[in-house]
Design a protein around this nucleic acid. Structure first.
Lengths: 213, 213
DNA sequence: TCAATTTTGTGACTCCTTTCACAAAACTTG
DNA sequence: CAAGTTTTGTGAAAGGAGTCACAAAATTGA
């Protein structure tokens, strides 16, 4: 295998494979072929093999892939085998929903702090939801707490008007990854990564497909 | 302009242009060039023009595009000019956050009903949040209410274990569009459309980028 | 009115992604 | 152990998507 640039789409699919493999592992399946995994993930079997080929050889010809091993390998590739420490900034409706979002716990994504301009307002509701409540700090302590708690990813769930200034704070605090739920484009320096989650963009997509089919 | 298949990516970008144009309209800008719009949306100027060219000619050579007209045209193309009637199924933390999600109101996406297995549990919290509270029905009334209220898009925010059966109900009720927040693959017949919003998939993406840069 | 300027719309090119097709490798069975 | 079967890994082909570069169209100003 020679080195090549890895397509963004490949990474997205790896995450999908990872999820499917987890389900398979839970239901006790030990070996899986590229064709089985592909049909489960709604992709082409050659695609599965090619995606994996970017990173090495993981299968046994004539047999397939060991579910457990492949899952580990994919998680190692994605970097989702380690625990990622996250903070939520903006503890409104969406923010507090994320604080108690169960799928984060199953995967290795852990929210270790949260921030708001008006911290006390929601403490009660959040702590009642979880076994171990996530503390809510005032935003002006973001830099301090982010360093202290080694936060690596920030989830921005503020109103759009505040998103860029929160992003600036995160950058200043050295938080290199941002998941932006605020429906506005934010800009960060080289070396930092922003991924947007814009519900209305996805709805626009759906609306287009529904209008034209 | 001859007919061509329109790339999925083009549709996503149109939604982005739409958002930028809205901001421009609000700030009183009347005319915009492809270069300006492009830099604002972080894409190539030729890309903007090509995306639009799939659907016709909207600009004036030597001048640019009229913000207002272009915005209308794009919304018409996307189908986001009409009001879309939606339902939330699964009124947990995420579901109720969506019920009071402000950006839906600004765009033409309206939640007109919600469903849960245990409807009364959250009524108080939801209704207190909004001017006009969204009613919560028992899931077994989904088909009935969906038809009555002309629901076109369903937002699935149940636990993953229930997602497929909820999708089946939506299909049965003739709800053609599904936005799936439950972290599991769901299957629908030809003619129905599912878009997934998997937070952990996006985090996996982020994790990969952070691990390898 | 006409030359200079601006900016669109688009054919051609390049680059990237997916699919195909088959040799190579491992396992199975008699 | 050898022939048959299965399934991987991968070069080559096909298919899409993004960028470039320029003619065409509109405006401006003298």
């Amino acid at each position: 295998m020679k080195y090549q640039k890895i397509p963004e789409a490949t990474i997205r699919r790896l995450s999908r494979y990872s999820r499917c493999l987890e389900e398979m592992e839970e239901s006790g399946e030990e070996v899986v072929s590229s064709a089985q995994l592909a049909s489960r993930c709604m992709v082409n079997a050659a695609q599965v093999r090619k995606d994996l080929a970017y990173f090495g050889e993981f299968g046994i010809r004539g047999v397939g892939y060991h579910v457990k091993n492949l899952l580990n390998d994919i998680k190692r590739i994605l970097g989702s085998n380690k625990e990622w420490r996250m903070a939520v900034i903006g503890v409104g409706n969406l923010g507090s929903a994320l604080l108690s979002y169960k799928d984060f716990l199953k995967q290795n994504y852990k929210i270790v702090a949260s921030f708001d301009i008006d911290p006390p307002k929601v403490i009660g509701r959040v702590s009642e939801k979880l076994g171990k409540p996530v503390e809510i700090f005032h935003v002006n302590r973001l830099k301090e707490i982010a360093k202290e708690r080694k936060i690596e990813i920030g989830l921005i769930t503020t109103p759009p008007s505040e998103a860029q200034s929160v992003a600036d704070l995160l950058v200043e605090a050295g938080v290199r990854g941002i998941l932006n739920f605020a429906p506005t484009q934010i800009v960060v320096p080289e070396g930092f990564v922003v991924k947007d989650v814009f519900f209305t963009t996805i709805l626009d997509n759906l609306a287009y497909l529904l209008s034209n089919n």
